[in-house]
Design a protein around this nucleic acid. Structure first.
Lengths: 347, 347
DNA sequence: TTGAAAGCGCTAACAA
DNA sequence: TTGTTAGCGCTTTCAA
């Protein structure tokens, strides 16, 4: 067994409570005894037992991270490590630790969250996603347990602390950009519409089209996983349309790469025959690498701010409702102008 | 405050210890009281407090994960999420949780590990890397604290539980493959040589060359980060050599993509002018996608087995010293034969 | 400025 | 089959 506070107290000829106060650097303890006790802690190699402390203080300084249930896809995308890095740095700064949810199915994850929360393992929770009708969010909210959502919540937006980009605006700008280039047959490819960010991006896309007086076509809106298979399926769908789009807005770089690749295999080149704008900007930051024109959503900042928000909430009991992380449109080489003026030159 | 075991006991007219035994499904308790107590737990919405249980049992069922200190690169590579997925599944299966180390620098990480271990937060630790002269490993070993290393340890290989591929053999096979294709000027690009896996792969590369009677050239061995910048730097180095290699063995897909890309920008095409074999196989499993001939090291299995090994160690007090995960050579389109017979045809 | 003592919620001898 | 009791190692009133 390891050294306890009692043994330190004995050696130092003080009460355990005094040692405890030395640990937390209580100002009521004289410098002299502090120095003496610290020396003995050092000599004995004493380290406080966090579990005992947690039990007494009813706080662990551990934050639970909840991944989405479609985590197989999540694990194959650089979004996850990027956001973890931000979370990790934000937590480390305030001496918090991060506990991962391990479940695969929705039920497993739910059970895991209940265990973390009711078991007193975590002081707060961060949801690494936001989707509609989420049981876990409802559970946390019903219990008034501190949590932060990465992604704007679908309901109760006024009362939930979240961190997000302005996805509507970002998608609108991306779509506008394509419209400016002369495109009118513009498609949208996103993943599961239960995710709020997909809804938002779709909404921004639609808003841009409407404002430009372009009629929406249901055929042009496609939903697939953020995976290579998803990309392939999406590419097939696109080519099966009578009047296929000349440009695409896509909700993720990985998905976009898959689509671009599949389209190329089917004989459709980017940007010559089809223009592409995507989201996330995690795959090699260099502009020259894959050449996807894309919206950089600053994933690291998203994670960092989420950690900051939950910690603030835990420490002050309150936190800003919504934090919006700025995005940046990064123009590269996956889009081509098809304005009539440009076209006539070609004729 | 939440419901405690005492309140359940009162309502059920039993002693707290009986409730405790019901929770752990102790066979000594009669079915009748079990049912009664469970009903009351249900009705009160009781959930055991894990912290209290952990303190009493001196075990938390939490496993600490330690990332390498060069984690900025780690976070930008799909190796990390892939191994996490394996770890996660292995942990979930046995009802263990995963705690992440959050530090950036070596010192921060070391402090974090000490805190986890001495603080009694974790029952065991998994090192997600293996490098020579690792303080953390030494610390854990000195304390005889249960841990598993992902990657063969540099020292004390007999007594440390680890999970790894046969990287020497894999690199030897990859190099052999290039030799079979007629290459003799073969380079090796890896990252930091303090990582054991890089050492092993380098060793396998050298062994294959020696066996084929090819003289090693120090110029042909390059070390760079697993990042795009690293790839760029490596590409420059290669082109600066008087007699540049006609083929490369590389220790990571991400690095390889960066190198391939940079080389192409500098006018050297793959596989026409330079052949490439790499490692990891995390970036889109489809053979057609990026076309890199590569060694699939089954990262998921590596993580899954690591979780399994540490849990076995925690439960039985013992575990196999080394588990070797099989690798698979995946032939694609990044290598070209330059055998003399083929060459003469061209002349 | 320090100490004594109770208690955080649970488990695990030992008794019955 | 169940209850009693003494901790696990720390914090925190209350008292001195």
């Amino acid at each position: 067994m390891a050294i306890t506070i009692k043994e330190v107290a004995q050696r130092a000829n003080v009460a355990p409570s005094t040692v405890s106060r030395v640990i937390s650097n209580d100002p009521r303890i004289s410098e002299k005894t502090k120095v003496r006790v610290r020396k003995i802690m050092e000599r004995l190699g004493y380290h406080p037992n966090f579990i005992a402390r947690s039990l007494a203080k009813r706080s662990t300084r551990i934050i639970g991270l909840v991944l989405p249930s479609s985590s197989n896809v999540f694990y194959q995308n650089l979004f996850f490590p990027a956001i973890l890095q931000g979370l990790s740095e934000g937590a480390q700064k305030e001496q918090y630790s991060l506990l991962l949810s391990t479940g695969k199915t929705e039920d497993e994850i739910y059970e895991g969250v209940v265990k973390m929360v009711q078991g007193g393992i975590v002081d707060g929770v961060i949801l690494l996603y936001s989707r509609m009708n989420d049981h876990i969010l409802t559970y946390l909210r019903d219990r008034a347990f501190p949590f932060v959502s990465i992604g704007k919540p679908y309901d109760f937006i006024e009362e939930i602390t979240y961190v997000d980009n302005d996805n509507v605006l970002a998608a609108e700008q991306a779509t506008d950009y394509l419209i400016q280039l002369g495109h009118e047959r513009i498609g949208f490819i996103g993943d599961d519409l239960t995710f709020v960010k997909t809804l938002d991006r779709l909404f921004g896309y639609e808003r841009a089209l409407k404002r430009a007086g372009i009629v929406l076509s249901g055929e042009y809106i496609i939903h697939e996983d953020f995976s290579h298979e998803g990309g392939q399926a999406a590419a097939k769908r696109i080519l099966s349309i009578d009047e296929p789009p000349t440009a695409l807005v896509m909700s993720d770089d990985f998905l976009a790469l898959g689509v671009v690749h599949s389209l190329r295999e089917m004989g459709l080149r980017t940007p010559e025959e089809i223009s592409i704008v995507s989201f996330n900007q995690v795959l090699f930051p260099e502009p020259s690498f894959h050449g996807l024109t894309s919206v950089d959503i600053n994933i690291f900042d998203l994670g960092y701010q989420a950690a900051k928000s939950i910690i603030q909430k835990l420490q002050t009991g309150d936190a800003p409702t919504g934090s919006i992380i700025p995005h940046h449109f990064v123009e590269r080489h996956s889009c081509k102008s098809i304005k009539r003026t440009a076209m006539t030159l070609t004729y």
